[in-house]
């Protein structure tokens, strides 16, 4: 069953077509990787899904509900959360507060709720705290609750981003280059972690450059080049696909790579 559907999605920035009529389905419960050379439009796809950009043409829908024109802050509530290519934690907040922000989309928040519904708010806050601690335990960070996020090690910060994205129990988790800057051992741990997250029923869509990781955990791979989807299939199929090899290594023949 398809969870997220991209239907003829195109976005143009002035004369540049960053994403060009992409059709892609992400199935419930799978691990799908999106790969492609630098500047292929992978991050733009994430920004389209999270409604930071609106597609010039085409539609994106989550379980049949259109995401187009939904404000960014509603996306998390609908069940899509993400991590970032470069870490974007709230560095001056505690680890626990960072994760609690991830649960912001659940339940109510406001000035009047805070002062008029004190008991309700307290209960809600306790629930959020419990969830946040569970998410931190899941990612082995429970002992760091009170630390400021900026004082964590790089690998811990990466995990904290994932915890923050998981706490609201999303349907779909977008991981933007989760292995960036990690050493080989950390990558092995990360692969394990991603599988564990998927086993809790969360669908995973990741952008990644590290081929070993991508080939190791993905069930399907989609390849983007100059905004166009040039291949889609199992790791084995993609690995032997001529268009993919050409996009990554060149064809060996002279060919202008500049699109007209």
């Amino acid at each position: 069953m398809s969870l997220l559907t991209l239907d003829n999605v195109t976005i143009r920035f002035g004369g540049l077509t960053a994403v060009d009529t992409v059709n892609l389905e992400i199935n419930q419960g799978e691990i799908l990787a999106l790969i492609g050379p630098n500047g292929a439009g992978k991050s733009t796809v994430f920004n389209l899904i999270t409604s930071i950009y609106q597609p010039t043409e085409g539609t994106i829908s989550l379980a049949g509900k259109s995401l187009v024109r939904i404000p960014t802050h509603k996306i998390a509530e609908m069940g899509i959360t993400r991590t970032f290519q470069t870490i974007r934690l709230f560095s001056e907040l505690s680890v626990l507060d960072n994760v609690k922000i991830g649960a912001h989309c659940r339940g109510k928040a406001g000035l009047f709720q805070a002062f008029t519904r004190l008991p309700g708010m307290k209960r809600e806050e306790a629930e959020i705290e419990e969830k946040a601690i569970k998410a931190l335990e899941f990612l082995d960070l429970a002992t760091k609750c009170e630390e400021m996020a900026k004082n964590l090690s790089y690998g811990e910060q990466r995990r904290l981003e994932i915890a923050r994205a998981l706490v609201s129990k999303p349907k779909l988790l977008l991981l933007d280059e989760p292995a960036a800057g990690m050493n080989p051992q950390e990558k092995v741990v990360l692969m394990e972690m991603i599988r564990r997250i998927r086993d809790t029923g969360i669908t995973i869509f990741l952008v990644e450059h590290d081929m070993k990781l991508v080939m190791g955990i993905s069930e399907r791979i989609a390849v983007l080049d100059y905004g166009k989807l040039i291949a889609e299939g199992t790791p084995l199929e993609v690995r032997s696909n001529n268009a993919v090899i050409e996009a990554y290594l060149g064809s060996g023949k002279f060919k202008s790579r500049i699109r007209r």
Binding site: I75, A76, T81, S91, K100, A114, M121
Partner: peptide, 30 residues
């Protein structure tokens, strides 16, 4: 309010990174 309420936490998050906060479901305008 700023330290312990949900809205206060969202305010502190917004002060640091509005775009990231908005992706966590924080309504920036609010």
């Amino acid at each position: 309010f700023v330290t312990y309420s949900k809205m206060g936490r969202a305010m502190r998050a917004c002060a640091q990174d509005q775009d990231a906060a908005s992706l966590m479901g924080v309504n920036i305008d609010r």
